[in-house]
Design a protein around this nucleic acid. Structure first.
Lengths: 136, 136
DNA sequence: CTTAATTCCTATTATTCCGATAGGATTTAA
DNA sequence: TTAAATCCTATCGGAATAATAGGAATTAAG
C-alpha cells in the first residue's frame, strides 16, 4: 500500500508543477485545494525540500516551489524519498537491501525471485515517468 | 511491503509443491525447514485451506497437501487471499476498490493514473506466474 | 481402548508504524 | 512593528501486523 505521505507528496508536486511561473505557493493553498491535512503536508514538503526537490521562501508571501524542471523529476527518486524501497521485500531492494532472517539462500528463494520480477517492472515505470509526464 | 503472512504462505505453498506424491505434510516440518514460527504458520495454512488451495488431514500423521495442480495456482489469486489488493491504492484496485476521501475526480488524479500503470504491470506478472513456474 | 500426535479454532498480546497534531522559534513583507 | 509564513522537534492515538496461548476435536497405531 502506498502511504498517504507519498500520495500527498505526489499530489503536492503535481500541484506545484502545474503553476504558472515558479512563484512560491503556500502550504495552506495546497492543503486546501487538495484536501490534505495542513500540518501533515507541512512535514511532507519539508522532507521534499531537504531532499532537493523543493525550494522554500520563509516569511510573509513565502511558500514552496520546484527546484528542478518537472522533466527531471523521476518517479523513482520521489518514491524512494517518500515511500522508501520500491521492492516489496527488503532482500530484493536495490537501495534499501536487507537480508532475510529466514532464507539461507536468496537465489533459491521463490519469493525472492518472484519479487525481483515485480520490482523490475515497477522500477521500469518509475524510472521512465517524470513529473512532467504526470501532468500531460 | 509484502507481509510476512504472504511471504510465509508462498514459501509453504512452494514447499508443498516440491513434495513427491501428495502426502500430507505436517505444519511442524514446514515450520522447521523454512524457519517460520509454528503457530503463525498454522494460521496461514488454515486460511489457505479455507480458500480452497490446501486440503488437510487431521490427527496423527495428518498434515496439509495441495488440492490443485501447481500449474493451476496463479500468483494473483494467492496474493489476493493472503495480501489483499494488488494495487498500491484502493482507488485503483479491481477487487478491493474504495473511493478516496480527497480526490473529487479520479480520472484527473495523477497518482491514480500512475498507480494504474503499476497495477497493470504487476498484475500481468501475477496472472502469468503459477506455483509451478516458481519451482522451475 | 488408550495414547500420542496432529489439526482446528478463538482469543489475546506485543510491537511497530502511520497519520495526524501541538506549539513555539524563526524569518520576512508591508 | 506586526502579521503571515516556514521551520523544527516532539508526541499521541489508533490500526495493523506478527506472534502466542490454550484447549477442543480428530485419528493412527499399539
Amino acid at each position: 500500500m502506498l502511504s498517504k505521505k507519498t500520495k500527498y507528496g505526489l499530489k503536492a508536486l503535481t500541484y506545484l508543477a502545474k503553476q504558472e511561473g515558479n512563484q512560491p505557493v503556500q502550504i495552506s493553498a495546497i492543503s486546501k485545494d487538495e484536501n490534505i491535512s495542513r500540518k501533515f503536508l507541512e512535514s511532507i514538503l519539508l522532507t521534499l525540500r531537504k531532499n532537493g526537490f523543493l525550494g522554500s521562501k520563509k516569511g510573509k508571501l513565502g511558500g514552496y516551489y520546484l527546484l528542478k524542471d518537472p522533466k527531471d523529476i523521476k518517479m523513482s527518486s520521489v518514491m524512494r524519498i517518500l515511500e522508501g524501497p520500491i521492492a516489496m521485500v527488503p532482500c530484493v531492494s536495490l537501495n534499501f537491501y536487507e537480508k532475510c532472517d529466514d532464507c539461507p539462500d536468496e537465489t533459491a528463494c521463490t519469493v525472492h525471485n518472484l519479487m525481483t520480477e515485480v520490482r523490475d517492472s515497477t522500477l521500469h515505470i518509475f524510472n521512465n515517468t517524470s513529473l512532467a509526464d504526470l501532468i500531460k
